Simulated scan of single mutants.
Amino acid sequence: MKTASRLVAAGLVLTVLACAPPPDRQEVEFRVPVTVREVETGDVEDRVIATGTLRTPETISLRADTAGALRVARAANGRRLAEGDSVEAGQLLAEITGEEVRLAAAADARQQRLAAARRDYETKKALFDEGLISAEALRPFETALADAQLEWERSQLTQNRSRLVTPISGVVLRLARDEQNRPLADGQLVVQGAELAQVAPTRSLVADVDLIGQDLAKVRERLEARVRHSAWGDTRFEGTVIRLAPSLDPMTRTLRAEVAVENPGGELRPGMFVEVTIISERRTDVPVVPREAVTERGGRKVVFVLEGQKVTRRDVALGLGDDDVVEIRQGVQPGERVVVRGIETLQDDQRVRVSGA
């Protein structure tokens, strides 16, 4: 009997448990983790980036005006001048020896004749001033003085023909080489007209840049430019667009732009390949967001703006930008926060969890 009662009681308990409603299940809400950044104001640029080749703006070629034996000049420390040395305007680079004795003697003789002609003229001029001789009597002495002056000046020019003096300050690009580019030693004979030196200024260089496509419409003269070379890391050299070619190259269909580059320290060298960034337009104090904050939905550029614990999708109008930031002309205001990470699957009015700001 007791066993039967226990069985009945157990059955009642099971029946009650079976009929009881299930315990409440706590729903877990999933929030997309995102990182946000505040919309800031900053400066943005439209840039044309191309590769250029550096060259000197001008090169002075010095040639032998007379034949003779070569002697390269010495620097202040007594060392023979060499390619790569810096020189100042008026500095002697080389001399052509062999006729210097004859030329010096001829110059001395003409100087003596000039002195004698000047004394004779001054004597006759004094007599003329006193009215003792006529103008006709003075005229031959005037002519003799003028002729002596001209002969002396010519002798000086002839004597200077044996000296190679640079008319500009710069760097020696080429010095004492023959037509096969072999170096010439002091004492070797050179012929008249042989090129003995090339000098060029290097404190300001020119980068030749070839433009293509849409860049042709962006670049114009006097635009600011920046030049860099991998050897100098992030160091930037300031420049300016100084000239655009009047027509395209018929072979490459590119337009040549010349950019003057400041090189006060001489780090850059002619012949280097450099990266040239031309600033075609700049805007200052405009709303900007990181480039990764902008995505495309339905063919429109949009950003997701954080509002409380949700995000709102907004269409935006973009302006200038680079690889890092982009200008927002319409759609958001400075101070608002936009999603920069976790944007891939976001939807409008979706709840999010901010994991970084």
Rank of each mutant, 00 (worst) to 15 (best):
P246E: 01
P264Y: 07
G266A: 06
R228M: 06
A197R: 08
D234M: 11
E58L: 06
A200R: 04
A176V: 11
I168K: 11
F304T: 01
E275L: 01
R6G: 15
A75R: 00
A73V: 09
Q330F: 15
A257D: 13
L248A: 12
P290L: 04
A231C: 05
D285T: 15
T166E: 05
G170Q: 07
R329E: 13
V259N: 08
L211N: 08
T143E: 12
V72K: 05
L70P: 09
G78A: 14
L145K: 06
Q91A: 00
N263P: 04
G170Y: 01
R55E: 07
E344V: 00
A194T: 08
Q149L: 14
V199K: 00
Q198P: 00
V206W: 15
R37N: 11
A231P: 04
T66V: 12
R63V: 05
S134E: 06
R31C: 01
I278M: 13
V303D: 15
A76M: 05
F128K: 14
T312S: 15
L248V: 10
A105C: 10
R47Y: 03
R253I: 05
D285Y: 14
G356E: 05
V28F: 05
R283F: 12
E130S: 01
A126F: 13
A225R: 08
G131Y: 10
Q192N: 13
T3P: 02
P21A: 01
A9W: 06
D208R: 06
L173S: 00
A94H: 03
E292W: 11
Q188V: 15
K310S: 10
P201T: 10
P183W: 09
V165W: 00
L145Y: 10
L93Y: 05
D186T: 03
T166K: 02
R182Y: 02
P270D: 10
E29L: 01
R220P: 01
A64V: 07
F304W: 03
M1E: 08
D249A: 06
Q149I: 14
L223N: 05
A73G: 13
Y121G: 08
E292N: 11
R80H: 11
M1I: 10
F30V: 09
Q347S: 11
R37S: 09
T166N: 04
Q350P: 03
N77E: 13
R300G: 12
N181F: 09
R110F: 15
V32N: 00
S280L: 10
A137G: 13
P22F: 02
S61I: 00
V352I: 02
L205Y: 10
A82I: 05
V48A: 06
E344Y: 06
R182K: 07
D108R: 14
G187S: 04
L184A: 05
A357D: 15
G42I: 09
I133R: 08
R228F: 05
L268R: 06
M251C: 12
E296F: 03
R102I: 09
T158S: 13
G11L: 09
A69H: 14
R63G: 02
V87W: 08
S86D: 11
A231V: 01
V354H: 07
D348I: 07
E38N: 01
L318A: 08
R25E: 15
R110Q: 15
A69E: 11
A89T: 11
E83H: 03
A207Q: 14
T56M: 00
V294N: 14
V352K: 03
Q198I: 03
E281K: 12
G187P: 04
V190S: 07
